[in-house]
């Protein structure tokens, strides 16, 4: 990574060499020159082969790329780490802020980097490559985009977040129930904190499906703004943390299909399940994932085991509930211990 200059003065030896060239005679190449020439020819050959391969067989190149990038980056998203430095400079961050980001980028590049308050919704390219479900990648893509859109969330306009879409009742009896319940529940909980990030709702939305708690455990960290346990600093927690011992069984929130299974530097081993009604749930920091992408699961069936993988200070389940892409407070849907 060094781009300096070498203050080598032209030594007499090289002057003699130049004289030979100018005289027109092709003097025999020295050993060093021969070696350099051979190296150059080999490298030029490799260059041509790779260019040709990329043009003729791009899919193969992509696969090789995935493998290589996997080894080099090892779950580390350098792009995001470097970008955060640029952002800090652009947003007029102080010197300490910029330097601390440099420190994080160099020494802890795997850590989630604060981009205006977004934490666990952050995935590295490795995660993107490791998910095997077709639909899942769309959701993950959305997550990744969310990270980069988060900078817009710091503006006051974001406080008027989009209201969640009205719940579609699946039957007449449900309509009555929903209308009745919505009269009771359709109250925004009194919230007097900083502006919520994009795509978050504190409302107790009706999911329209039967569900159960994935785990019986104490809520060790609730939904919303909190001091990040590893990074320090005020960050938004998009889910809920349930404390439990490593190996404890994690059950599926409701009937559904596993749409993503992956391993991320921040979320550790995680899986995402899609349920009916536009509901998806995420289970992270697991020690073991017991299902695979595309598998159908029944409510309450074991899908993973609690662990301490990813950025985590102790064994727990990080649980998120999403409704049509909006993060909801999972506490509404848990049975307390």
């Amino acid at each position: 990574m060094q781009t300096g200059y070498r203050a080598r003065t032209a030594r007499p030896r090289s002057a003699a060499r130049m004289k030979t060239k100018r005289s027109g005679k092709t003097a025999a190449l020295g050993k060093k020159e021969k070696r350099r020439m051979i190296q150059l020819i080999i490298c030029a050959g490799i260059f041509l082969v790779m260019v040709a391969a990329k043009i003729v067989y791009p899919a193969g190149i992509d696969r090789v790329r995935g493998d290589i990038m996997g080894v080099i980056t090892q779950d580390v998203d350098y792009k995001a780490a470097f970008s955060s430095i640029g952002r800090a400079i652009g947003e007029g961050g102080g010197v300490t802020d910029v330097l601390s980001r440099v420190y994080v980028a160099v020494v802890h590049p795997g850590r989630t980097v604060a981009v205006s308050g977004v934490t666990e919704g952050f995935l590295s390219e490795q995660d993107y490559l490791s998910t095997s479900a077709g639909d899942g990648s769309a959701i993950l893509n959305r997550r990744v985009n969310r990270v980069f859109d988060a900078s817009a969330a710091s503006s006051p306009e974001a406080a008027q977040q989009p209201e969640a879409e009205p719940i579609q009742a699946s039957s007449e009896s449900e309509t009555a129930e929903i209308t009745h319940l919505s009269a009771v529940i359709e109250v925004e909980p009194a919230y007097s904190g900083p502006a919520l990030p994009d795509g978050v709702s504190l409302k107790h939305e009706l999911l329209g499906i039967t569900f159960t708690s994935p785990l019986k455990g104490e809520i060790s960290s609730p939904f919303g703004y909190r001091e990040h346990p590893v990074d320090g600093g005020e960050k938004f927690h998009y889910g809920i943390d349930l404390a439990a011992d490593t190996g404890a069984a994690v059950g599926a929130f409701a009937d559904g299909k596993v749409i993503a299974v992956g391993d991320s530097s921040s979320l550790g081993k995680y899986l995402e399940i899609e349920h009916a009604g536009g509901v998806t749930t995420l289970y992270a920091h697991c020690s073991k994932i017991c299902v695979s992408a595309g598998q159908s699961v029944a409510m309450g069936s074991k899908v993973a085991e609690v662990g301490n993988t990813g950025i985590s200070t102790g064994p727990h389940l990080h649980f998120e509930v999403h409704l049509n892409g909006i993060y909801l407070n999972p506490a509404w849907y848990l049975t307390t211990v």
Binding site: M1, Q2, T3, G4, K79, A81, F82, S83, S84, I85, G86, R87, I89, G90, V98, V102, A105, V106
Partner: peptide, 16 residues
């Protein structure tokens, strides 16, 4: 890309 370039240039300079 702008932020990425900025960050990379900054780190390169600090490193050097």
């Amino acid at each position: 890309a702008a932020y990425l370039f900025s960050g990379i240039s900054f780190i390169l300079s600090v490193f050097n």
